[in-house]
């Protein structure tokens, strides 16, 4: 069992995402620590990528800001290492496959372990293609966190059975971004997944308000918030620490 299970050990998990290096690596470090202190149970660090095809405009812009500010893969590893030295909240990366492939799967997973990163969420690595990375990741104790979408009909059972870390249930079609309304029957979707696996199920894509968190927390093991956090950082720049603390606390409170 990996570190990730700690995030789900004590009630419903609040999973907080930011893009590493947006606006700077030093700011990301402060924000990750602040969010953990404010109640985030798991921290998801996005490795900026030139062409993030699963992201909406908010996180796309964060990727561009981070890359323009000079963030690179080794810089993000160093960020993770520094955060891990300060807090024991589990860390995962969200990354597209090419930076991992280019770094070399073996070397990348080894660096993850050294820096305290417990899992990888890779939006362009679907279940069928995981075989080339999963055994290497497992050897280093890294979970490949798999996604299940509203369009995964007929595939959920197999994906859920082989899931490690947690299952990332995608709430809606399309790309990441704040949604006022989620039309998927999430309770049923999460219920179907939970029939297949004891691995925790967290819901992301479009989640942003405490009301949504409370509603989803009633049937899922956690919620994942990305775009809302990134938009706070986009608005506040270097001064986002206080509003991030307040926001994370409000979400964690709604889940309790």
């Amino acid at each position: 069992m990996s570190d990730i299970s700690k995030a789900f050990a004590d009630g419903k998990a609040f999973i907080a995402f930011l893009t590493g290096g947006d606006p700077t690596l030093a700011a990301s470090e402060r924000y990750l620590v602040a969010m953990a202190e404010a109640g985030a149970d798991l921290l998801e660090i996005g490795i900026p990528f030139s062409d993030p095809i699963a992201e909406g405009p908010v996180i796309q812009a964060a990727n561009i800001r981070a890359l323009s500010a000079g963030a690179n893969v080794d810089g993000i590893f160093e960020l993770a290492r520094r955060v891990h030295a300060k807090i024991d909240t589990p860390l995962v990366f969200l990354t597209y496959l090419n930076p991992v492939f280019h770094y070399g799967y073996e070397r990348f997973c080894e660096r993850c372990r050294e820096c305290g990163v417990s899992g990888l969420i890779i939006p362009d690595l679907p279940y069928e293609e995981q075989g080339e990375l999963k055994p290497i990741a497992a050897k280093h104790g890294i979970d490949i966190i798999t996604l299940i979408a509203p369009t995964s009909e007929g595939r959920e059972a197999q994906i859920a059975k082989d899931a490690t870390g947690f299952v990332y249930a995608v709430s809606s079609l399309g790309v990441t971004g704040v949604r006022s309304e989620i039309t998927t029957d999430l309770a049923r979707m999460v219920g179907d997944i939970k029939k297949q696996t004891d691995t925790p199920v967290a819901v992301g894509f479009g989640v942003h308000s405490p009301e949504q968190a409370a509603e989803i927390g009633a049937f899922a093991d956690g919620v994942i918030v990305g775009s809302k956090i990134v938009s706070i950082i986009a608005e506040q720049g270097e001064d986002a620490e206080v509003p991030l603390r307040e926001y994370v606390a409000s979400m964690k409170n709604a889940l309790s």
Binding site: I53, P123, D124, E128, T151, V170
Partner: peptide, 8 residues
Amino acid sequence: YIPETLMN
């Protein structure tokens, strides 16, 4: 190598 949403 595409998002799960498009696999089916």
